[in-house]
Nucleic acid binder design. Sequence first.
DNA 1: CCAGTAACTTGCATTTTGCAAGTGTGTGGC
DNA 2: GCCACACACTTGCAAAATGCAAGTTACTGG
Lengths: 137, 137
Amino acid sequence: MSTHKAFLRSPCALANSLDLVGDRWSLLVVRDLLQGKHTYGELADSREGIPTNILADRLKRLEASGILVKAPYQERPVRYSYTLTPKGKDLGNVLLAFVRWGTQHIPGTVVMKAGQASDGTKTPEKTSRHRRVGAAR
Amino acid sequence: MSTHKAFLRSPCALANSLDLVGDRWSLLVVRDLLQGKHTYGELADSREGIPTNILADRLKRLEASGILVKAPYQERPVRYSYTLTPKGKDLGNVLLAFVRWGTQHIPGTVVMKAGQASDGTKTPEKTSRHRRVGAAR
DNA sequence: CCAGTAACTTGCATTTTGCAAGTGTGTGGC
DNA sequence: GCCACACACTTGCAAAATGCAAGTTACTGG
């Protein structure tokens, strides 16, 4: 099979990025993965309450587009771990841009991102492993 | 009445940003406005072929959330001009992050963004005018 | 055998899309 | 006045996506 299908809308990088992660849930899943979550259960338990069918669908799509990979981390009982690829981790910069825009322009919103943004807002961070956002700037 | 409604999903800046512009079209409209387009017709004539009902809806939503303003720029015949507010212009950074991610990770995509980049990225791209894209099936 | 957990699927009502066609307002030409 | 035309939208659906609840499968410990 070919590695990529024809462009759906245009060759514009923005349009194609939006076709992959331009919906209300995908980037929240990426956020949670960046924060150190890695199982379906942890992801389903997000603050925003993503419906499980949507989560399953987004995980499939994100895997299909090479943003994350699914792999069993134990065999008996089989349990899966979702982790970001480099492509997925690079979305951290997009998240960061969104977070900066949101905190600046939507009153009341806070940074809920582990690894810290530029404005010094504290995050109620729990035991994160050693995963950090590849922050620009 | 309160000045703003309760958070739809969570106080997370990312989640709230996505509630405003987290769909497949909003940021493309912002892109076109940043590129200098300002009338409904010019926006409707985008490369990706946004349906006019969707465009009308997005313009209303973006105006409601203070990302752009609509104003008549001539009276007889009345013609409207859509322009970004500072809030809307700041989305340029989000666009930039998306464009960088896309060009880096989605093979074949190109930058189609005019001027106004904070890192000196330039586009020799020019805009096509009223060319129809009958590509949608 | 039973309860429990993780990881999904399924059903179905509601909402959002996408496409085409239509409407309202005003302008210039004849 | 009448017609063609352009701009800025609406309207009418069919099709798809979303959201909620409940069900399913695989396994394990008691």
